[in-house]
Design a protein around this nucleic acid. Structure first.
Lengths: 238, 238
DNA sequence: CGGCTATTTGATCGATTTCAAGAACAGTGG
DNA sequence: CCACTGTTCTTGAAATCGATCAAATAGCCG
């Protein structure tokens, strides 16, 4: 039978969609790449890793920095699909098409490890891990779809902060200090909110003493309080 | 080489997210399975193919019928992630976890081809195709996220109808007659709308002579007119 | 023939968007 | 080093689209 470890935890942590995938050790893929010819690429803020339509020649393992991925319609409508941190693979969504299917833009300076597509089949065990990484991305997307579709503006912002704090903590950073590398507009786009709504939600959380705001540096003062904001939805289960 | 037909068409047909993946011939995977030990499984309306948390032992190739996939939070909040038709693979999102990550429920009678996970590695060329299928699902999800996040209620309903019509046409059905196997509530959940909003949108389209409604059977009277409803967004590009 | 689910339409409400305007900040070049 | 310029952030006020509440009808299934 199933215990609470995976999917239940996944569901409980619904507001932080990636929680259930802790078994995807960020360093697992790095280990697989030992001895493989990898090109390192440094990247500066606002530089693009790749753009929609460009021929895809490699996957990129993000080794440092933060990258925003987004899809866009020809009329300019745009949707941020995620913010990628160290250990995340970029370009997975384009496998099988030959061309990139999204834009990937660095939000600060970073480092990418380039894995040529030609090498993929030659690395033992990588195929299975790639499939697993793709599946993880799908589950992540679905959890955010659920979050965006069912929570209020304030709850979404809280879910975003807690998710980011958790991911940063997993990478060894302080879970209390969340440095936003993206604009309020980016956050809003990701959460399907206007940037003013994000600002208001953050202001309200600050006014309530739950967080501190210093420009892009968010300090989490009351984690339990933040989680309580997500709880009303959870409590309905009782 | 790859011409512009893929991603460009993908972008232009943004309202019908799966348009760009026509190269994913539904029968391509069926061909790969020639000679492989496949168990067929018939399924009736409202029966579940699998549920979140169940051990995953196989992938399922949907050979007939329509299946609704959804994720849920413990408090009952639920999000429909897609409606699967003939040729779609079920269970991809769970690869690497050992347990199913969503619910899959048949909306009418259907037939599933069961591909045991143990067989996956033994079928030549399937690994690459699985990765491609997973990537296609990610792009599909992102396009719907974009659609839901940026279009009005009426536009979303139109996008849904056109997408379904296109997919059914690709399977050999009439592009004029869209048989909805799901409830208005299901459609609304998928589009992040209340069922009443879906009803009103459909009623308005019918009043405008664009479609005909006979319970779950939708007849598309004016395809160009429907596309024009999506056009205002597109026109902004000029 | 019930009993339940699904659909439809109307009326009202409200959370978020939209519009507006000022302030703070960051990057740039002189 | 500092002025300049454009971006980002913040807050207020008003408007709106879709949600919510309500109720009647119609199907469907057993």
């Amino acid at each position: 039978m199933l215990d609470a470890s995976n999917e239940t935890a996944f569901a409980t942590a619904d507001a932080t969609p990636e929680a259930g995938d802790a078994h995807d050790d960020p360093r697992a893929i790095e280990r697989l790449l030992a001895g493989v010819a990898i090109r390192r690429r440094m990247i500066g803020a606002r530089q693009t890793v790749f753009r929609t339509g460009q021929p895809q020649s490699a996957l990129y393992l993000l080794h440092a920095g933060v990258v925003r991925t987004s899809v866009a319609a020809p009329d300019g409508r745009e949707k941020v699909t995620g913010f990628r941190l160290r250990g995340d693979l970029l370009g997975l969504e384009s496998l099988g098409t030959g061309r990139h299917a999204c834009d990937a833009v660095a939000l600060d300076t970073g480092e990418l490890w380039e894995i040529p597509l030609a090498q993929l089949a030659t690395i033992p065990g990588l195929q299975e891990r790639l499939a697993a990484a793709l599946a993880t991305e799908i589950r992540r997307d679905w959890q955010w779809m659920l979050t965006v579709a069912t929570l209020t503006a304030e709850q979404r912002v809280v879910a975003f902060l807690l998710d980011l704090a958790r991911r940063l903590e997993a990478l060894g950073y302080s879970p209390r200090h969340v440095m936003l590398r993206m604009t309020r507009g980016d956050v809003g786009n990701f959460l399907s909110l206007q940037l003013e709504t994000v600002v208001r939600a953050l202001s309200k959380l600050q006014a309530g003493g739950l967080i501190g705001i210093d420009h892009r540096e968010i300090t989490i003062h009351d984690r339990a309080g933040l989680e309580a904001i997500l709880a009303p939805a959870v409590r309905l289960a009782a």
